[in-house]
Design a protein around this nucleic acid. Structure first.
Lengths: 340, 340
DNA sequence: GTGAAAGCGCTAACAC
DNA sequence: GTGTTAGCGCTTTCAC
């Protein structure tokens, strides 16, 4: 193993030298195509044994270069440190593994430039396809991928240029709103008798759909929604907390119901509620779009919407597995409502 | 751009043809080494513009093959869908990015075989180094890496064959135990006056250190620890819940204090506590090794240990950045105690 | 200041 | 049934 001794990793040429076979024979044996080359069983065994004994492992970059494939599959997420996205990552990993691909998951901090450069990097590594989750500008990424002919799909946030698998936000929000209205204590009147929507960014697709779901049901069951009932205060716990404080001051108490648009905002809400007396917030029906185990153990009842990460990813891969489509599709997956 | 028209991606040869320069000049310009080649500024600009206008992006597999580097850095985690590990992932990503490397994070479900095959895959892709977190058998992985001369480091769980950066589990557990004992309501006697340790696997390094920290302080302040006080019931919420139920039955009530060894176990514990009356568990001092935002909002006070993912990763990369060491080191990072 | 050519480790067509 | 050979796209010596 002269080459190995020189510090390099052992290659098929080393194995070829060691066994007296040729590089192509070794290659065929070691990558499984040897049956079609009708290589003798014993030759194959001999080669395999030698390879194993020297700890040979194929150089996947070389293979990738030659076959212009990489065996890698990419995914971008806004952040790892989040229940929903880490759930998606977990499912992505499972699906990738089932296809013999090595998952590369990169986070982009919701930064559009970083999204672009990350996708460029993935493309440069010749990933087989890309799953784009929570992108701020999915279509910019689609254009990049299209340029290099890379299959890709949007998950969670839809785009116009590629198929998308998203949560059925309208349905989930409508259903959650319906339940909150059912739970609402009767009696109060005026602004405090209404429901309020808190958190997220109104421009963002998911939030917009949820606001529509909320408004539709609210309108049908209680009455028209006033703009003051929608507090899309952003994605930070602090902003949600401040929003809650302001709302509480404005109304002179808690409203009949609260629709919190993410666990991130929910954190701020809970922080504020903790400053109140139990009997005060016991009067308020609380719901959160998104799920967290511990949020379900709080000292007041809360209804949560759990998005179906498993189906979202399964559908995404189903589309990637199929031959490319003519026109982008949007598939909506219903979330599940969980009451505590 | 004939090659591009044939469906391939554009290469430096395409750019060379288009600009009339040679492939090596194009290469130098596009990878930044052109100054040392004293290529004329205008030539460089011309080439860069052409490259950009055709949307050229380098084939990183080819570059990697040639330079026997990949620009990838690997990490294995037991699972993505967990606060602690996803926090580590997030920091890993930041550190990798700071070094211009593309992070590849793969989960292994705490399956030893999968750990091995994942590390093999990463090695085959020529990753620059590997961060191993929460491995069941770190030393087996170290041997693999050593075989191929890949730098690597253990995080969270230590190994004997490579340097490790771990949480100071003994200190954290001792400190948590001390606080629980302080909070303990005086008065009771017998088994119920003691603290109980719940969750984790006694054989696992982290759990073992924590049990030692717990026992040392318990011994010093209350008295010897009875084997019956240690319930290392595993990593499943269900097991912890069952463990709690059994303990409660055995003691005829809750003990003076409860040391829960992970948020996973804590989930089961909380599930059980929910079945009790408020004034019953209000008597029990509760602590959890590991942190979760929402766990801090429960209807009883809890002290949590928050591991310092940022410093864990920073130290890990600091070691990877240094020249290889003669003897493996173990660095312990103190966690932070947070009371609610 | 720039080009020609070799080669990274692998695969696949084509020999025989 | 197995060997020879020509690249995959890039970097890097060496030449001029």
């Amino acid at each position: 193993m002269m080459r190995a001794e020189r510090g390099r990793k052992t290659t098929i040429y080393d194995i070829a030298d060691a066994t007296g076979a040729s590089a192509s024979t070794v290659s065929a044996v070691l990558n499984g195509t040897w049956r079609q080359r009708r290589i003798r069983e014993e030759t194959a065994n001999y080669i395999r044994n030698t390879a194993e004994s020297v700890g040979y492992s194929a150089n996947l970059q070389a293979r990738g270069l030659r076959k212009s494939r990489s065996g890698l599959i990419g995914m971008i997420v806004p952040l790892h440190d989040n229940r929903f996205f880490s759930g998606l990552s977990q499912r992505f990993e499972t699906e990738a593994r089932a296809r013999g691909l090595c998952p590369v998951i990169v986070s982009t901090s919701r930064d559009p430039e970083r999204e672009v450069s990350t996708v460029e990097t993935l493309i440069s590594y010749n990933v087989e396809s890309i799953v784009i989750t929570g992108a701020t500008d999915p279509d910019a990424l689609s254009r990049l991928c299209a340029q290099s002919g890379i299959r890709h799909i949007n998950v969670d946030l839809p785009g116009k240029l590629a198929s998308s698998v998203i949560s059925d936000n309208h349905w989930g929000a409508a259903e959650l709103t319906r339940r909150l209205i059912e739970q609402r204590r009767p009696g109060s009147e005026g602004p405090r008798s209404k429901l309020y929507f808190l958190g997220g960014v109104a421009g963002d697709h998911a939030t917009a759909s949820r606001i529509r779901g909320f408004s539709d049901v609210h309108h049908a069951l209680i009455g028209p929604v006033d703009p003051g009932q929608i507090l899309a205060s952003g994605y930070e716990p602090d902003l949600a907390e401040a929003g809650m404080r302001a709302l509480h001051a404005r109304l002179g108490g808690l409203p009949a119901g609260l629709f919190v648009n993410s666990t991130i905002a929910f954190e701020g809400v809970v922080r504020f509620l903790k400053t109140l007396q139990f009997d005060e917030f016991a009067q308020c029906a609380i719901g959160c779009y998104d799920y967290d185990v511990f949020a379900s153990f709080l000292h007041f009842p809360v209804t949560m919407v759990r998005q179906d990460a498993e189906r979202l990813m399964a559908e995404a891969f189903a589309i990637l597995d199929e031959p490319a489509e003519l026109r982008p599709r949007v598939i909506e997956i219903r979330p599940e409502l969980v009451a505590f």
